[in-house]
Amino acid sequence: MAEKFIELRGVHVRVGGKTILSDVSFYAERGEILAVIGGSGAGKTTCLRVMTGQIRPVRGEVQVAGIDAVRDREKLEHVLGYVPQLDETGLYYEFSAIRNACLFARMYGIPAREAKRRAREILEVLGFRSEELMKKPVGQLSGGERKRVSICVGLIHEPQVLLLDEPTTGLDAHLRVDVLNYLRNINRQYGVTMGIVSHDLETAEFCDRVAVLEKGHVVIFGNPKEFVRSIQAKYAFILSFEKLTDNDISKIKSLRIVTKVLPVGRRTLKVFIRKIEEPLNVLVDELEKVGLTPLSVTSSDITFTDYFRLTAMEKEEEPYFPRSH
């Protein structure tokens, strides 16, 4: 059985008389990437602070790389790397990427020359191709570059676990994907276990395990691929219609090849299809049979975001569209 490398068991946190986390449990095994996802006030940053030993839970156990984060916080410093949400809270903007990394490395007693070597190596993995970029003051770098410097600083002491607070917040869509890909590379290259806190469901696609928090409770926890499998679909298509009513959606839902239907716009649906031969042709035929002709049909991936939205929609048991439709 693989070793649980990040583990929260029955964690309960109260701040100022208010319960922030209630019976929170999740884990990640060695070398995995764990995403802790939730909206504002869900308690994800508190989870991170609990994992870094900055906040003591009133109840529950927290283990990070085999260290009790509640009792042995000081031991955590050596096994844990941390990337804060805001780069300005973790980087000296007047220093270069190399200088920042070396400064933090010195805190761990890493000799200057070794620190520089490691910094260059990590920065190269993170896409810093030129020496000039590495020596530029961090304040003059772009948001995506700064985020990568922050990740480099978190990794400089070769931690076993890297925790990241909203690493993609404030970045453009393509930069978000870039950063997550870089994290994947780091995970593969160094075998470092990662915990990513994010409000962005997209993050889960890059992770081996996901915990979704809502108002201090874990509502979903597991492998995102398994959640995706639970949709019981092999294909997904985005259909656009000129006009779409609740009745039309019910007709689509009743088709035998369709497992789930998810509205993605006013006149657009994402339809999940079970494993069949020539799914696109079959889908169009089936739609025509019930009197529906889509304006466009586009093939799409089945993602954890789809699973999450489907689950949320089913839980709320609300009609697909507000009554005005």
Partner: peptide
């Protein structure tokens, strides 16, 4: 010194 808080997560 805002990044100092981050530095304090190291052995410093």
């Amino acid at each position: 010194d805002v990044p100092l808080r981050r530095l304090l997560l190291t052995p410093a």
